[in-house]
Structure formats: structure tokens, C-alpha cells
Design a protein around this nucleic acid. Structure first.
Lengths: 129, 129
DNA sequence: CACGACATTTCAGTACACTGAACTAAATTG
DNA sequence: CAATTTAGTTCAGTGTACTGAAATGTCGTG
């Protein structure tokens, strides 16, 4: 999975950090540059570069906030991320079809719990520094 | 999962590439520096650095090949990789216990097939360059 | 046993993302 | 409405991993 993400990044011209930033953006719907900086642990100066690369790759957009014109509203471009993963999505959909609904439920449960475990373990590792 | 790997790398002082190299080493049992270079797509010069970092982190060992003293036999240090992931391994073992043997079989089947899909999709992406 | 081929290391140069500080522009406050 | 705070960008400096080429040591071969 790590190798796959690296390959996606190489074809799109974005780093691993950029992809994690995109995940944050998609998860939140939209974020400001400052929020993004805090979330991924970079300085505001570095975030400019992150958003530059995501925008150049067509994955995110940078718009001024109409309420507060100092701020940016950074949003994911709908579909762009999916396009990069369309081959994977198709193959995974075919894979899912091999299982009964009951089996799919078990798999889904396991995946959700595994994600929770990974999040927790990541938190522990990052705390120890 | 990508974030977790990054956190592991940061605590051990190895890069994502280094970790993929370690996976190659463990998968093959042992490799020479040249084989490793070809496998992960780096020049021989860069591989010296990769092995340096893995050795410094206590994850791999670099020994001269007794048959051909120009060559290196690079092996993984048994247990070292597992130690870095011991927290994850424990949590995942507990998670596994929540499921019946039949359910575990379904999950195992899905994981194996998902890995195959990811390998294939990674190959396709890397080919397109 | 000398010669060319091979495996790895070393080293200078390059690329690139990050930090920290200065800067611009916009909002808030008194 | 001036002064302060806040948001983001720019820029010089830094760290680090990679490439390409030269150097070192070792293996086969005629």
C-alpha cells in the first residue's frame, strides 16, 4: 500500500505529505492554510508549497474566503482524487463482488477496526517524540 | 497506513524507501546491493546510503559474501523489524481474536487478494513512466 | 598472471522540501 | 482611524537523499 501511494505521488508530482494533506482537506470538506499547517505539523511557509503542488496536480483548489479575505478556502477538486485511483477503485469493486453481503459486512468491520488501530498506534509513535 | 509507516520511519531514522528496501530484503531472505538497487529502482551509489541507514537503525546487516568477496550479503536482523511494530502486532492480534475462525478465513482471503490488487495497480502506475 | 569485467563505495554536484524571518494585506480593537 | 493582531506568501538558508563518475578491491579468463 505504501508502494502504491508512492507510485501515485510520483505520477501526479505530489509528495506523501501532500497526499496526507489532501486526505485532511477531503475529510474536513474545506480548510484554511493555517488549519492545514496545524493538522499536518508544518509551518505556514511549507503549506504554501503543499497547496501549490496539489493545485498544480489539479487535486485541490485555493480560493479566497469571502468572509475573511486574508484567509484561503482550500477544497479538493471533486473527482480528481478518484480519477488517480480509478484503476484501484474498479479492481476493488470487482474484488468486493466476490463476497456475500454477510462476508462484506465482516470485512468492512475488520477494515474499520484496523483503521482505528493504525490511528491509535500512529498517535502513540508520534507522541514519543 | 501511510501515516503509520511515516511515523515508524521517523522514530527509527529511516526513509520510506528504506522501509520498502527492508521489505525486499525480508522477502528474499538476503540480497546483494546490486540486486537491491535494481529492485527498488535506485543507483548503486544510493543503495550504500539505504543500507547505511538500515544498519544504523539495527534493522539490517551488511556482510561480505564468502563466495564472492566483492559482493555483500544484506540480511534483515531477526526480530528488529517486529520490535518496531510490536505495538501494532499486539493490537492486531487482539483484533483478530474478535472474529470466528470462519470470519478470519474470509478476512485473510480478502487481505491476500487486496495485496495482489495493490501490487498489480502499482505495477501499472510505474510502467506508465 | 596480466587483463578486462564486475560489485560496491566515495565524492562532488544537484534537486527539493522544510524552517524561520521578513513582508503584504486584511481584519479587529480601542 | 491609528495601532495591533492575524493569514498567507516570499525568500534565503539548511538538511538530506539521489545521480553520475571516479576509485577501490575482487573475480574470472585467455
Amino acid at each position: 500500500m505504501v508502494a502504491f501511494h508512492e507510485a501515485v505521488g510520483a505520477t501526479l508530482g505530489v509528495t506523501a505529505v501532500d497526499q496526507r494533506a489532501l486526505a485532511v482537506i477531503m475529510g474536513a470538506g474545506s480548510v484554511s492554510a493555517g488549519e492545514l499547517a496545524k493538522e499536518i505539523g508544518l509551518t505556514p511557509g511549507a503549506v504554501t508549497g503543499v497547496v501549490d503542488r496539489l493545485a498544480r496536480a489539479g487535486l485541490a483548489r485555493r480560493e479566497p474566503d469571502p468572509q475573511d479575505r486574508r484567509r484561503l478556502v482550500i477544497t479538493a477538486v471533486p473527482g480528481a482524487f478518484g480519477d488517480a485511483f480509478s484503476g484501484l477503485a474498479k479492481a476493488m469493486a470487482e474484488l468486493t463482488d466476490r463476497y456475500t453481503p454477510a462476508e462484506q459486512a465482516v470485512i468492512g468491520d475488520w477494515v474499520a477496526r484496523t483503521i482505528a488501530v493504525l490511528r491509535e498506534q500512529t498517535r502513540i509513535l508520534n507522541e514519543r517524540r
